[in-house]
């Protein structure tokens, strides 16, 4: 499943970068995440609750930041498992400053699903991914406004 898109956020690149590198902020803005713990440098343990159409479940697993380019972006590797199947996603994130203190966040990657999640969830997954992405950016914008 492909995960690609972009969004312009109302903050400068430095601020966005700081937010993306902050565990507490990430836990607040990533949809479904209920817990995010740092386990090592750039490695986190994540617990998420996600409901997607006919399948819902509690996911747990790791989140790793790779290929960190200070102020420009990184590659996010998420590996989650659950009773209903596993998800393995690799997403490259790039930040590009645009005019007047805005930042364009571009993401490009894909996710591999397995188990029941793949078998019965696949039909609704691209819709779910779209919804989750929208939620992520809504949350991000709210976070920018409130902090």
């Amino acid at each position: 499943m492909d995960l690609t898109g972009s969004h312009i956020l109302n903050a400068d690149t430095n601020r966005i970068w700081a937010m993306l590198m902050d565990t507490d902020t990430l836990a607040r803005i990533v949809p479904g995440i209920t817990r995010l713990e740092k386990t090592a440098e750039n490695e986190y343990k994540a617990v998420a609750e996600i409901k997607m159409g006919p399948v819902s479940g509690s996911f747990s697993g790791g989140l790793t930041l790779q290929d960190i380019r200070e102020g420009e972006g990184y590659t996010l590797h998420v590996k989650q498992s659950s009773k209903i199947g596993n998800a393995d996603a690799t997403i490259r994130i790039d930040l590009k400053p645009t005019d007047e203190g805005h930042t364009e966040l571009v993401f490009d990657g894909g996710a591999k699903l397995s188990g029941l999640l793949a078998r019965t969830g696949n039909r609704v997954m691209s819709g779910v991914a779209h919804t989750l992405t929208k939620q992520f950016f809504n949350n991000f914008e709210q976070e920018i406004e409130t902090v």
Partner: peptide, 14 residues
């Protein structure tokens, strides 16, 4: 089957 070998229409819904 998808390229990873997951049967993605393995139910009567699909």
């Amino acid at each position: 089957y998808d390229e990873n070998g997951q049967l993605i229409n393995g139910s009567y819904m699909d």
